[in-house]
Amino acid sequence: MIKHVNFLIGSACNMKCGYCLQTNEKSPADHKADPVEFAHKFARYLGGQKLERVAYWGGEPMLYWDRIRALHGTLKAEGIIPEQSTITTNGRSLTDDYVDYANANPDIFTVVSWHDGKFTDEQISRIFRLKQFSISQLIHHYHTDMWDTRDLYYSLYEKFGRFPNTAVHFLRANDGCSKDYYLTKEDVDKFCKHLREVIEFARVGDTWALWQCSQLLYHRNKVKSRVGPMCVRDELLSIDLHGNIYACHHNYDASNITGNIFRKVIPIKATPQYSPRRFYDSPECQNCECLEECRGGCYTSNTHEIDCYFAKERHYIYKAMERILK
């Protein structure tokens, strides 16, 4: 049974981040499609089933906002939109129309990727007009601690009178990502040392440190609740508006298409570059005490040994975080 759906709207973006996971700027997802027509067909495909979660992905979703709004509105009219819909954006192209629509539709949660570059005061003010949002930062070779996240957390509170929901995510070293950003073992050691320092801040009641520990544990526990590899599960469907099914929502390349929900045969190479279970099913992963927390890691990763080392180091650090939060 399908519970979660990633809608891949298109690969265009107004930023060119070196760590972007997209391997190809041209994708079948970019071919013109009618979002309303697709939504009706998709509702018939589900046969009345309501979803638990949907997520809208770019490229940069705000470049496709009219398309997403039409899709979301039609899915809502069909009665299949869940309690939470997530839109992940770099935040630079948020409009007043988007903010008003998101605030009027409580199911929409906006994740702002605070990864590269700076925001204008106008952009930040628009982000803080959102009722529900989080700020996400990325850990990679050039960013191995979260002290800037802490500075951001307190400075935004001083300016807007409320603490932002801040979180960090970890780089996936696939073919789309520049090797310059790949985490090394030394980078992992630096970040884990930093996490232990964060724990000490949490012990003395630092608000940000306590929040950050809770967020890391929250995301860890979300992964633990899953069955199968990290981003590829029977209950999860990643599709574009033509019905093409992608093995993973982080790669829109045609070679990552495995089928189509509307057609039995598709004129596209239908074999992913790697098996999504290539790490997860290995004896090493199946016998590892960390499997529930990492799900075998990213199946497209070029640094699996580093990822594995990182997962094991975090496993013991998370236990220390749990003791503090209790």
Rank of each mutant, 00 (worst) to 15 (best):
Q49D: 15
G161E: 02
V168P: 02
N14H: 07
F38L: 05
P35A: 06
K326P: 06
V223R: 12
F119T: 09
Y309M: 07
D100H: 13
I81W: 07
Y299I: 04
V227F: 10
R277W: 14
T258N: 03
A311E: 02
V112R: 02
C213A: 13
C290L: 11
D107Y: 15
Y157K: 09
D281Q: 03
S275Q: 11
K16T: 14
C192Q: 09
E235T: 12
F160P: 01
R162N: 09
A29H: 01
T149Q: 06
L171P: 04
G59W: 01
H143N: 10
V99M: 00
E313L: 13
L63W: 00
I257P: 00
T86M: 07
C177D: 06
P82Q: 09
Y246Q: 03
A39Y: 03
A12Q: 14
L75H: 03
N244V: 01
P35N: 05
R226K: 14
K16V: 14
W208E: 12
D116P: 06
P106G: 08
Y142C: 09
Y299R: 01
H31K: 15
D281V: 06
W147M: 14
T149W: 01
K179Y: 10
G228M: 07
R226H: 13
D145F: 01
A247C: 12
G73F: 05
E289Q: 14
P229I: 07
C17W: 02
A39M: 06
G91W: 01
Y154V: 05
D100E: 15
D66Y: 08
K269N: 15
L71N: 00
K193F: 10
E52W: 03
G297D: 05
Q137S: 14
I257S: 00
D34P: 02
D187G: 08
D116R: 10
G18S: 11
R295F: 13
F38T: 04
L241F: 02
E37C: 08
E289P: 10
N105C: 10
K264M: 11
P267C: 07
A247D: 04
E186R: 11
S11D: 09
P272F: 00
V265Q: 11
I68H: 04
D148L: 13
A209S: 10
I317C: 01
V111R: 09
R295L: 13
Y19H: 11
Q22M: 10
S255R: 04
Y252P: 02
E122H: 06
A12V: 11
E293P: 07
Y274H: 09
D281M: 04
V265I: 14
D180H: 12
Y56S: 03
L195T: 07
T95L: 07
P28K: 00
S255M: 08
L183M: 15
F163H: 06
C298P: 03
F160D: 02
K269F: 14
K312V: 14
S93I: 13
P28T: 07
F109A: 03
E235S: 10
